[in-house]
C-alpha cells in the first residue's frame, strides 16, 4: 500500500486532524504490535505514514491543497452514522436515574 496523506491516518488508525501527540502514540502502539523483525512490510508502511504526518510541511501541503474530489454527502452521512453521538457527562450520568 503506497502511503499518501489521506491514507496515512487510516494506516495509523487515527481520525484525520489528530494531534501530533496522538500521532506519536498511535505510531508507537502500532510499532509495538508490528515490530520490523516480525512484519517488516507493515512496519515500513506504518513508518512511512508516521513520516508523512510528522513532517509539518507535508501536513501544511495537504491542508493547502484543495480537495479535487467532490465529497459525497450521502457517504459522509453513512460514515458518520457508524459513530454514536457523544453525550455530555451529566446527561450521560442522568440516564441512570431511577425516577
Amino acid at each position: 500500500m503506497s502511503v499518501t496523506f489521506s491514507n496515512a491516518y487510516q494506516i495509523l488508525e487515527l481520525k484525520s486532524g489528530a494531534t501530533s501527540e496522538e500521532i506519536r502514540r498511535a505510531y508507537l502502539n502500532l510499532v509495538r504490535q508490528h515490530p520490523p523483525d516480525r512484519s517488516p512490510d507493515k512496519f515500513r508502511e506504518i513508518h512511512a505514514a508516521y513520516e508523512m504526518l510528522n513532517d509539518p510541511m507535508n501536513l501544511a501541503t495537504a491542508l493547502m491543497t484543495a480537495n479535487r474530489v467532490r465529497p459525497d454527502l450521502s457517504a459522509v452521512i453513512v460514515e458518520a452514522e457508524k459513530v454514536r453521538p457523544r453525550l455530555a457527562t451529566l446527561n450521560l450520568l442522568a440516564l441512570g436515574n431511577l425516577e
Binding site: A66, N67, R70, P71, L73, V76, I77, A80, V83, P85, R86
Partner: peptide, 20 residues
C-alpha cells in the same frame, strides 16, 4: 446542541461541496 459532532461533519461536507 444534541449531536454537535454529526452536525459539524455534515456541515463541513456541505461547505466542501460548495467549493466545487
Amino acid at each position: 446542541k444534541l449531536d454537535p459532532e454529526f452536525v459539524s461533519t455534515v456541515s463541513l461536507a456541505c461547505v466542501q461541496l460548495s467549493l466545487h
